[in-house]
């Protein structure tokens, strides 16, 4: 079993990268890889509640975030600097996630076997 960290760094809907990253995450987890997700920069906006992706012309891939525990994806890290930059609070996050400092993310990137950035 390989450990894999998937980093999301782009805002939702403006590109398909968030959706692609989530597809890779769920696919890898279905193949029993150990997957961690890391949300940084504007990608932290994926985790806000009350979004209507279809209104922005995007497919609703955010609903699948709620299924992550069923895929055994238990580690979801959110960069606290990025939240702060955008004036967001940990309490506003729509899914179970750990708000962590940059050092924790650095540690995770070092520890896993592979890192993919979306």
């Amino acid at each position: 079993m390989k450990s894999l960290a998937i980093v999301f760094r782009h805002a939702p809907f403006g590109s398909t990268s968030g959706r692609e990253g989530l597809d890779v995450a769920m696919l890898s987890a279905s193949f029993e890889q150990q997957v961690s997700l890391i949300f940084t920069d504007e990608a932290v906006l994926h985790l806000l509640g009350g979004q209507t992706p279809e209104q922005a012309g995007a497919k609703d891939y955010l609903s699948a975030l709620k299924a992550l525990p069923l895929y055994d994806i238990e580690t979801v890290l959110v960069c606290s600097d990025s939240l702060q930059q955008l004036g967001l609070n940990a309490s506003e996050l729509n899914i179970e996630a750990e708000v962590v400092g940059a050092d924790m993310i650095t540690k995770t990137l070092q520890a896993v076997d592979e890192v993919l950035v979306f």
Binding site: D60, K66, A67
Partner: peptide, 21 residues
């Protein structure tokens, strides 16, 4: 119902787990 909630069709492994739960 899984699809309507999560907007994705469950793969077999996930289906097994979710049905078990």
């Amino acid at each position: 119902n899984f699809y309507l909630e999560y907007k994705t069709s469950p793969a077999i492994r996930v289906l097994v787990k979710a049905i078990g739960q």
